[in-house]
Simulated assay, not measured.
Amino acid sequence: MTRLDLARIRAARRMIDPAFLDTPLYRCEGLETDLGCAVSIKLETANPVRSFKARGTEVVTSLLAGNHSPAVVCASAGNLGQALAWSGRGRGLDVTVVASRLAPAVKLDRIRALDARLELVDGDIEAARERAAAIARQDGIRLVEDSLDLETCEGAGTIGLELVDTVSSFDAVLIALGGGAMATGVGQVLKACAPEVEVICVQPLGAPAMTRSWHQRRVVTTDSIDTIADGVAGRRPIPAVLDDLLVVADDAVLVKEASIIAGMRILLDRAGLVVEPSAALGVAAILEDRDRFAGRHVVTIVCGSNVDMDAYHRWVGVTPDHRP
């Protein structure tokens, strides 16, 4: 058993703005020569905030607005903050986002542009979480905790509903693993509706806490992170989320930074997609273990495209004269 509920995931669809639902899902033949398997892309960047996170924040803010709550706060590496700002603005909520000063500037600028109050802290996402919790206590407002709050997981789980309703058959789904909201939400749906599909979580080698925790079946923390995939770079897994992940995930793997960059380059060259590093984790996993996926039909969830373009060009080797 997990904390998640399939009926609530189905109900969540009714709370989410249609702009975030039924995102493109298609077989991408251009990837198949490089990867050696059939690959379908679930494109969670084709929405107003360029990531899957709004599926969860739409549920959170819909319930808060129904309860006449005036304000909400979260900690974010960037994407959750944008999503909460977008969803809260549409429902008349005052939104505060706490982020690290080290977060990509493009993500911070978009949070500000969506009328949220942005507070920056020294340190990483864990420091931002501590500050957001302090603000919630001080002001008596709702703290949105990504992955711990079921709304964030079950909102993300609507991606799973769209997978099983759209793809006639597939063998595995590759899911970027950070805090665990998307992995547990999608995994819950697949285990209920398509149990034959292998649910594989992918995390950077430089931010391995949740993957190590999954393999050891206990919370394992790390002292630091070292990855370009800022969207999944946590150090302290949440015990309740790990418990859910142990039920719904079939495997959790770590990939190298070079493979993440190669995945971003392949998605640009073969699929015409500019993505942030976290969104290339699924492709990176295939690149590192081609034999495992050979001859199979794999779905990879392209989960975000909020990327600093100067950094992107450095990573993928695109020169200023040849930018996409």
Rank of each mutant, 00 (worst) to 15 (best):
L161M: 11
E162S: 11
L163S: 08
L163M: 03
T166V: 00
S169G: 11
D171F: 14
V173H: 06
V173A: 00
I175R: 01
I175Y: 04
A176M: 00
G180A: 03
A181S: 14
A181C: 10
M182P: 00
G185M: 05
V186R: 05
A192E: 14
C193E: 14
C193N: 09
E196N: 06
E196M: 13
E196W: 15
E198N: 00
V202D: 03
Q203V: 04
Q203L: 02
P204A: 06
A207C: 05
M210R: 02
T211A: 12
T211P: 03
W214H: 08
Q216F: 14
R218T: 14
V219K: 06
V220K: 09
V220W: 12
V220P: 03
D223K: 09
S224V: 09
S224D: 12
I225H: 10
T227Q: 02
D230F: 06
D230G: 06
V232D: 03
V232F: 01
V232T: 07
V232P: 01
A233R: 03
A233Y: 02
G234D: 05
R235Y: 12
R235L: 10
R235A: 14
P239N: 11
V241H: 02
L242V: 01
L242A: 01
D243K: 08
L245F: 02
V248C: 10
V248M: 11
A249I: 06
D251N: 12
L254Q: 11
L254E: 10
L254I: 01
K256I: 13
E257F: 07
A258I: 15
S259Q: 13
I260A: 11
I261W: 15
M264V: 13
